[in-house]
Design a protein around this nucleic acid. Structure first.
Length: 293
DNA sequence: GTCCCGACGC
DNA sequence: GCGTCCGGAC
C-alpha cells in the first residue's frame, strides 16, 4: 500500500504530464465524437494500428450524423482489418442512436453513454472522463494491473469485476476532476508503457518506491491461471476474418461457391457464414453474401 | 507459438 | 462467471 493514495495519484499525474504519448485523440481540441471513435477502435486494438485508421475516419465522418448517414456497409468496409468488425457495426449503430436520441451530440451522461450500442463500463467512463472532464473511475486492464501491483502487492490483477475494479480505483482517485482525469489516463499509460505485464520497467516508474509488489520482493502470481488464448489458426475467428475480407473487397454479393475455397469443410463454412449473418455483418440473398447495406 | 485485453450474450 | 469475437507485433 502506498504511503497515501494522494501521493500515489500525485506522482502518476506529474509523470503523465511529461510522459504521455502525443496521441491525436488526446489533443485539447478534439470533439467528444472523436474521443468516442478512438475508444471504440482501442477496445481491442493497439495504438499503432488505430492511429492511421482514426485519422481517416475523422476526416470522413467528423460527426455522428456523418457516420449515421451512410450505410453500415461503409463503416464495415472502412474498418478494414482493425479486427472484431462487430465494433464497426456497433459504432455505426451508436452514431445512429446519438442522432436519434441526443440530437446528434454525444451525451455526457454516464447512463446515456452506457445505453449506446457497443459501449460498456470502460468506454462509457472513458468518454465521460476524457471527452467531458467528468470525475469517474476509468479502469482498463492496464489500470487493473497497476493497482494490483502498487496497492495490493500482487503481480497480476484478479479477474475483472466491474464493481470491485471501480471501487478500487475510486479509493485512489483524486477529488479534483482535472486531477482525476489525468490520473485515469496516467494509470492506463503507466500500465501500457512502464508497468507492463511481462517486463515491468521499474527503473522508469514514478511510483516504484510506493509499490507494494516491489516492496514485497516481486512475489510471483499464484492463483487461478489466465485462460490460455484459443488457437487462432484454424479457428472460426480466422475464417470469419477471411470471409469478411472477401465481402469488403466486393461491391456485389459474393456467391457461396466463391467462398468455398476458404475452407474445405462445407458444413463449417456454412455454420460460420450463419454466425456472420446472425451478427448482422453479412446479408444473404439469392446471389450470395454481401455487407449489410 | 504468445500476447494483446473490452463488450456482449448466455 | 465464462466463452466468443480479429489481426498484427513480437
Amino acid at each position: 500500500m502506498p504511503r497515501s493514495p494522494a501521493e500515489f495519484a500525485d506522482r502518476v499525474v506529474a509523470w503523465f504530464a511529461g510522459a504521455a504519448r502525443p496521441l491525436p485523440w488526446r489533443a485539447a481540441d478534439v470533439s467528444p465524437w472523436a474521443v468516442l471513435v478512438s475508444e471504440f477502435m482501442l477496445q481491442q486494438t493497439q495504438v499503432a494500428r488505430v492511429q492511421p485508421k482514426w485519422e481517416e475516419w475523422m476526416l470522413r465522418w467528423p460527426t455522428p450524423a456523418d457516420l449515421a448517414g451512410v450505410p453500415p456497409s461503409e463503416a464495415v468496409r472502412a474498418w478494414d482489418r482493425l479486427g472484431y468488425p462487430r465494433r464497426a457495426l456497433w459504432l455505426h449503430r451508436a452514431a445512429t442512436e446519438i442522432v436519434e436520441r441526443h440530437g446528434g451530440e454525444v451525451p455526457d451522461d454516464l447512463d446515456a453513454l452506457l445505453a449506446l450500442q457497443g459501449i460498456g463500463p470502460y468506454t462509457a467512463r472513458a468518454v465521460a472522463a476524457f471527452a467531458f472532464g467528468a470525475r469517474h473511475p476509468v479502469v482498463d486492464t492496464n489500470t487493473r494491473r497497476v493497482l494490483a501491483r502498487v496497492v495490493d502487492g500482487r503481480a497480476q490483477a484478479a479477474p475483472p469485476s466491474a464493481a470491485r475494479d471501480l471501487a478500487a480505483m475510486s479509493a485512489v482517485l483524486p477529488a479534483d476532476p482535472a486531477a482525476a482525469r489525468a490520473f485515469n489516463a496516467g494509470a492506463m499509460e503507466l500500465g501500457a508503457t512502464v508497468c507492463a505485464a511481462r517486463l515491468p520497467r521499474c527503473d522508469a516508474c514514478p511510483v516504484a518506491d510506493l509499490c507494494a509488489w516491489r516492496a514485497a520482493g516481486y512475489p510471483a502470481h499464484h492463483g487461478p491461471k489466465r485462460r490460455t488464448q484459443a488457437r487462432f489458426e484454424g479457428s472460426d475467428r480466422q475464417l470469419r476474418g477471411r470471409i469478411m475480407r472477401e465481402l469488403r473487397g466486393s461491391h456485389r454479393p459474393v456467391a457461396r461457391d466463391e467462398l468455398a475455397p476458404l475452407d474445405a469443410d462445407a458444413a463449417r463454412l456454412d455454420r460460420v457464414l450463419g454466425t456472420l449473418v446472425a451478427d448482422g455483418l453479412a446479408v444473404a440473398s439469392d446471389d450470395g453474401y454481401a455487407l449489410p447495406s
